[in-house]
């Protein structure tokens, strides 16, 4: 009796045919919307761009005949393009190690617990979370030759008036960009490295201390290997960001003086939206994608090896 009653109960709970179908297909149904959007906004423009890069579309002409690799051949003759890649490389090569080093030193400073540590951390996060445009604007205020505090401080230290046009003078534009960049992103490195350092097995450190290992030895033998994967991820994320640096330069120097601080992102923007070299811009885009793919793959390979 109880048996048949419960089976009836089970039957009542049985969902409709439609409900059952929706449940059977659930793994695909819930993937579909996201993938659709990604294809639409992610992949479709790339394909479109690929096609355009083989054509000859400019501001004045809508020439859709296929010209093969003409645009790509053009890339190799474009000195301004290679210069912009050089600028990007310079900024990345200087800013990334600096951020890593400063971030590591900050992490060392804050690794041990002390009262008020959380407040320091909350404050130090601030530069990283603000919009890069705001960061650029802030440093433009700071660097201003007449109304900014940097010149004032330098004058005070030097004991005589120091007048540096940070965002215009060719000798100082790169330091200006890198100072701003390092200011904004060292805290990012700091946060990641701090977390990584706190995850280092304390018993290993204690064992090393009992063994009488020196600080440098502990660092090299225990700490660095333990945090190496995090360093790799952090460098990958920041490296990719630095290669596409745009906002800070836009607000600080706008690529100037001349095109001295023009990065690859800025140059692509100029080609696309000032010169309206549609096809050529598409070709540059693919150069950038190819470059980043190579870098990413290399870094990921290194990370695999490190594991």
């Amino acid at each position: 009796m109880t048996l048949s009653a419960s089976l009836n109960g089970a039957e009542q709970r049985r969902p409709s045919r439609l409900g059952r179908m929706l449940e059977d297909r659930l793994p695909y149904l819930i993937v579909a919307p996201a993938i659709l959007i990604l294809l639409l906004v992610g992949l479709f423009p790339l394909i479109y761009s690929l096609i355009v890069s083989f054509q000859r579309i400019t501001m004045t002409e809508n020439d859709t005949t296929f010209v093969g690799l003409l645009n790509y051949a053009e890339l190799f003759r474009d000195t301004r393009l290679w210069a912009s890649l050089g600028h990007t490389a310079i900024i990345t090569a200087i800013a990334l190690p600096l951020e890593l080093l400063i971030g590591f030193l900050m992490a060392q400073l804050f690794i041990d617990r002390m009262p008020g540590r959380q407040i320091f951390l909350a404050l130090l996060v601030l530069p990283t979370v603000i919009s890069p445009i705001v960061a650029g604007a802030t440093w433009r205020l700071m660097f201003d030759v007449r109304f900014g505090p940097i010149g004032q401080i330098l004058s005070f230290i030097a004991g005589e008036p120091v007048r540096i046009l940070w965002t215009v003078n060719p000798a100082y534009v790169y330091p200006a960009i890198i100072i701003c960049e390092v200011w904004q992103w060292s805290p990012f490195m700091f946060l990641l490295l701090l977390a990584a350092l706190s995850n280092v097995d304390p018993s290993q450190l204690e064992a090393a201390e009992i063994d009488g290992a020196s600080y440098l030895r502990v660092l090299r033998a225990i700490v660095l290997p333990a945090i190496a994967p995090v360093i790799a991820v952090a460098c990958l994320i920041r490296g990719l960001d630095l290669v596409r640096i745009f906002d800070i330069i836009w607000t600080l120097t706008e690529g100037g003086p001349g095109s001295m601080t023009e990065t690859i992102s800025l140059y692509t923007y100029v080609q696309g939206f000032s010169q309206f070299e549609t096809s050529y811009t598409a070709a540059i885009s693919f150069l950038v994608i190819a470059l980043l793919t190579v870098i990413t793959t290399l870094v990921l390979k290194r990370m695999e090896l490190a594991r």
């Binding site: 790339l46 355009v52 290669v243 939206f273 980043l292």
Partner: peptide, 17 residues
């Protein structure tokens, strides 16, 4: 990998579309 695509590489075709 979609996350790794630099915005500058797609912003132009997206603009055209």
């Amino acid at each position: 990998s979609q996350r790794m695509i630099p915005p500058i590489a797609v912003v132009f075709p997206i603009f055209l579309i």
